[in-house]
């Protein structure tokens, strides 16, 4: 799965989202130094290759009343984590589910899932449902509710761009 250097320029231009203007792909093209058709073709190609998993509106859960945002972390035996991760991802309210590196003794957990809900109690009940459904009643786990969002935006990747291209790209 190859992301070309021109793709990266486009991805950088997209970090703050599609401009809210009549010809947004033309504007993205101006930022990335390519024409409107190339912008559209590159986005289509990245979707087709699975590099972009979705393209559309990205909502802020909190402002829509989803104030209970829980990151649930589990300590699952390494030889069972694939089975459990797949079972967990099947719950409709689980929005993300990842296996991550553990860092014992500070951090024993290797499986992470996200649950967004309107009420803390509902989310806690959903965590119990996941535990029962995946046979994890006795697994060590922790629930980290978010208290505040300091920052949320698209990722940018421009640190390694040659200076010349940077100057020609976004103009800063």
């Amino acid at each position: 799965m190859v992301v070309t250097w021109r793709d990266r320029r486009l991805i950088e231009a997209l970090a703050d989202g599609l401009p809210l203007a009549a010809r947004p792909y033309a504007e993205l093209g101006r930022m990335a130094g390519m024409d409107e058709d190339e912008v559209i073709e590159r986005i289509q190609a990245m979707i087709a290759k699975g590099i972009i998993t979705r393209f559309g509106v990205i909502v802020r859960h909190h402002e829509l009343g989803y104030r209970a945002n829980a990151m649930v972390v589990w300590d699952i035996p390494d030889d069972d984590v694939a089975r459990v991760g797949e079972a967990m991802a099947d719950f409709p309210f689980v929005t993300l589910c990842y296996r991550r590196v553990r860092r014992p003794p500070l951090w024993p957990y290797n499986l992470f899932c996200m649950i967004h809900g309107r009420e803390r109690e509902t989310v806690l009940e959903q965590v119990e449902q996941v535990a029962r459904g995946c046979g994890l009643e006795n697994a060590r786990r922790d629930i980290l509710f978010s208290l505040r969002r300091f920052k949320q935006r698209g990722a940018i990747y421009r640190r390694d761009w040659p200076a010349l291209e940077l100057a020609a790209g976004t103009g800063g």
Partner: peptide, 14 residues
């Protein structure tokens, strides 16, 4: 309510 209209990338692909 809206962060942006934009792309979500497959983790690790970019």
């Amino acid at each position: 309510a809206l962060t942006r209209v934009g792309a979500v990338f497959r983790p690790g692909s970019v």
